[in-house]
Design a protein around this nucleic acid. Structure first.
Length: 439
RNA sequence: GCCCUGGUGGUGUAGGGGCUAUCAUGCGGGCCUGUCGAGCCCGCGACUCGGGUUCAAAUCCCGGCCAGGGCGCCA
């Protein structure tokens, strides 16, 4: 059978094959990026996860059999090459490999559905249809290497600060929370829905005594939105902590993002360079602006907005132009916030709620939560929801629920900021939007 | 869901009632010993779908589907 590894194993990645090891024999494995057959000499560029390396086969130095095998290569096939490293000033990273033995591990079909070398650009729709090929481009995989570092730092940060990682159900019974549309599914003989948020579950966890929890997981929203910053399946980074309020949790979020920015600068310099992206400044405390101040700013920019309204797209842009960078938008009107958000004690038309913005993009929403059963029921009723639909949630508030606060961050939107992407689809491997359900 | 724009080889495009439908890249074949956007020669490959107008539709009209941009929706 062709294409098996047998006793072949990769000895070096492309980036580890440097002039310092000239003279050594190595085994390279990867994809055929380019083939340049000049007749008497053949150049093949092999690409792996770390970069590219050149195979050089001069007809005077290598067997005719090797030349034949190289000519059988097709672009994007998976191959393994054993050969000797040779210093070569003219080659891509200062070295080339003179091949001694070759294996084709899997031949690629032709023509390719898109061009991974990007000589001819492809549209995002074409790219997503062949996402595995698209990801072979270093400026695409760089986004996901940065996103991975982001999750790594966030997990480290939570663990170091005493948060327990939890998993809550994504199959839920209730469609009574109001707000966003849910995806209905069939759950045996019952109707069920895909979870829009872990909100109610992480609050119930506050009644468990575990104090501080976080979850990184998928959320589903059945809205027919069609924008560069909405998807129907997204990843949410959710945190909830007992004996803390909105101010405390803004501090947690602020510190977390400072860590994320620092770690990506430190560990993803190469990816940032590939993307030509500079991370935003993030040190110390982000500015805070109240909702009342924001309304004034927005109106002063000539964008009409009444007190009590949510921000329109134009309002977000006007505010983003003035504020710039990361900033917290605080002290929202209670009426446009969900039932579980704590009103101010002295003026209940305001809520202990905040959004974290980056320019005109909303990254996070958070709040001090209502922990008193009676107030919670009252707020549910005020929003024309039925408390009966919240039975198992409300039960947790009857037997010792501590004061608590929390937030949720859109992980894919945060990735847009960290990678300089204009389209959220760029930041999700296999995005789910209004029209796309495959791959 | 609304508004605007568009849909032409595998990919990215030009054209815009009648000529063999343009170009690049790609793919196949040939030449070529230092390529690195290799070069040169030959060849292959396309008008989103349905209906209408017309002697004639890729082109004009209507509708569907899909895409791009903007907005709305998004506790």
């Amino acid at each position: 059978m062709q294409g098996l590894l047998n006793d072949w194993r990769r000895s070096n990645y492309a980036k580890d094959t440097t002039p310092e090891i000239a003279g050594e024999d190595v085994t390279i494995m990867g994809w055929v990026h380019e083939i340049r057959d000049l007749g008497g000499i053949i150049f093949v560029i092999i690409r792996d996860v770390t970069g590219r390396i050149q195979i050089t086969a001069p007809s005077k130095k290598v067997d005719a059999e090797i030349l034949e095998e190289l000519r059988a290569f097709r672009k994007e096939s998976v191959v393994a090459v054993k050969g000797t490293v040779q210093e070569a000033g003219k080659a891509p990273n200062g070295v080339e490999i003179i091949p001694k033995e070759i294996k084709i591990l899997n031949l690629s079909n032709q023509p390719l559905p898109m061009d991974p070398t990007e000589k001819v650009k492809a549209e995002i729709d074409t790219r997503l249809d062949s996402r595995f090929l698209d990801l072979r481009k270093e400026n695409v995989s760089a986004i996901f290497k940065i996103k991975g570092q982001m999750f790594h730092t966030i997990r480290d940060f939570f663990y170091e600060n005493g948060f327990y990682e939890i998993n809550t159900p994504k199959l839920v019974a209730s469609a009574t929370e109001g707000g966003t549309e849910l995806f209905p599914i069939t759950y045996f003989e019952k109707e069920a829905f895909l979870g829009q948020s872990p909100q109610l579950y992480k609050q119930m966890m506050m009644g468990s005594g575990m104090d501080k929890v976080f979850e990184i997981g998928q959320i589903f929203r059945a809205e027919e939105h069609d924008t560069l910053r909405h998807l129907n399946e997204a990843v949410s980074i959710d945190a909830e902590a007992s004996f803390m309020d909105d101010e405390d949790m803004m501090k947690v979020l602020n510190d977390m993002l400072v860590n994320v920015i620092a770690d990506i600068n430190e560990n993803c310099a190469n990816e940032l360079e590939i993307l030509g992206h500079e991370l935003p400044e993030a040190e110390g405390d982000f500015p805070h602006v109240t909702y009342d101040e924001a309304v004034d700013i927005i109106n002063s920019k000539g964008v009409e907005m009444d007190w009590g309204e949510d921000l329109s797209r134009a309002a977000e842009k006007a505010l983003g132009d003035t504020m710039g960078g990361f900033y917290f938008l605080t002290k929202w009107p209670s009426a446009i916030k969900p039932f579980y958000v704590m009103p101010f004690e002295d003026d209940e038309k305001y809520a202990h709620a905040f959004d974290l913005m980056y320019n005109n993009l909303e990254l996070s929403s958070g709040a001090t939560r209502v922990h008193q059963y009676d107030l919670l029921v009252k707020q549910i009723e005020e929003r024309d929801l039925n408390p009966d639909g919240f039975g198992s949630y409300l039960k947790a508030f009857e037997y010792g629920m501590p004061p608590h606060a929390g937030w949720g961050v859109g992980a894919d939107r945060l990735t847009m900021v960290l990678t300089g992407s204009e389209n959220i689809r760029e930041c999700v491997l296999f995005p789910r939007d209004r029209h796309r359900l495959t791959p």
